[in-house]
Design a protein around this nucleic acid. Structure first.
Lengths: 205, 205
DNA sequence: GACTATTTTACCTTGTTGGTCGAAAATACG
DNA sequence: CGTATTTTCGACCAACAAGGTAAAATAGTC
């Protein structure tokens, strides 16, 4: 016999977990804290989520799905491909920033935590490939962009943007990247997109 | 033989510790992390500070001394006692907020952490008593305020403001008080001061 | 080379924390 | 009211993290 709204409790736990992970990062948050936040004893959490890692991944998955939904909404707009590309970059940096916050680290390296993300990243990259491919294809079809191979170009853009994001790990000095780190990332990313768009724009006669 | 600038290393450690304590709170910060931040191995910290608690208290003491210096600067201004009282309240709330951040808590209660503050609070309260007494006495002397017993009034004000600050612990729901908690505290504190000033203001004829 | 200051490696002890289990409590239904 | 199911919790365990120590190594100066 089902209690009313069992998923409601799961949602509460996810929200509480997300809040703490976002501030303290994965390793510094304890299951005890999350349990207290939702008014339960620690063992109760294991009724809904088998492990701490599982709970963390559920939080990440939730963020990713929200990101994907937002991207899809953005793509539905009637806008030139270039504008969609720029918008996509902004949204991707926001997701990246959020994931960095969610896994903010003590002595634990990013490598340790990225193993928890595991296949979540692979899934995200697949989605990104589809998104960018669709954007570039639409641009080619509409005549906005000159692209020989949209799929290959999409993959290159993804790799370049990823490389720019990776660079932020090598320049940071404190547990949380300073605002300037994200500002620099955005500047570089926007610059890259503008250069690529200039190269892809069909000549105006 | 002295290495160059030994206090320099202490200052670096204090700065690194303060930064981490301010974000993560006393219990979640590890000595390992602080050591890494200043490029040392953990045992090196114990060369400069005997315990983690000692380091924390040194950080708190530093904040307090800065607060006291700022207060003394403010008091040197040529301004009416009422205005100085209002300014004092603002500065005291800022210090309180900073100390709350510096000791932000996981499951650890404020009571546990306040034992670390120990005599630091007693020292601070002594200073506050002197400060407020001086302000009220100056007001009485200048004719701005009607006060029978400035020392007793100073003590009452300190206790009332302290009570308002204590209330914030019973209403908070997350590891870090929301902005609104401090906004409410400021509103109540300002209101208190205005009421007291109205009662103390010498009648204008 | 002697002396002092600073740092590090290796280590110890204790408490924390992820996680489990069995039982109790709460809820729903006939 | 009895039974079934869901949810919760106190007590507990094992592994590891973290505060702290000691001895040795390193660096600087005379």
């Amino acid at each position: 016999m089902q209690h009313e709204q069992p998923q409601a409790k799961e949602t509460l736990i996810l929200a509480a977990a997300r809040k703490r992970f976002a501030y303290y990062g994965f390793s510094k948050v304890t299951m005890d804290e999350i349990a207290s936040d939702v008014g339960l004893a620690k063992p109760s959490l294991y009724y809904y989520f088998p492990t701490k890692e599982n709970l963390f991944r559920a939080v990440i998955g939730h963020e990713q799905r929200a990101f994907t939904r937002d991207i899809e909404l953005m793509l539905k707009k009637d806008a030139p491909a270039g504008e969609k590309l720029r918008e996509y970059v902004d949204m991707r940096i926001r997701l990246f920033r959020e994931l960095v916050n969610l896994s903010a680290l003590g002595v634990q390296s990013w490598a340790e935590v990225s193993s928890i993300f595991g296949d979540l990243f692979a899934t995200l990259e697949e989605q990104e490939q589809k998104i960018l491919h669709a954007v570039l294809l639409a641009g080619k079809t509409s005549g906005d962009l000159e692209i020989v191979n949209p799929a290959q170009t999409a993959r290159l853009i993804i790799h370049l943007l990823h490389g720019l994001r990776l660079r932020t790990f090598h320049t940071r000095r404190s547990p949380h990247p300073e605002e300037s780190v994200y500002a620099d990332l955005k500047k570089d990313s926007d610059h890259l997109i503008e250069l690529l768009l200039n190269g892809m724009k069909r000549q105006q006669h």
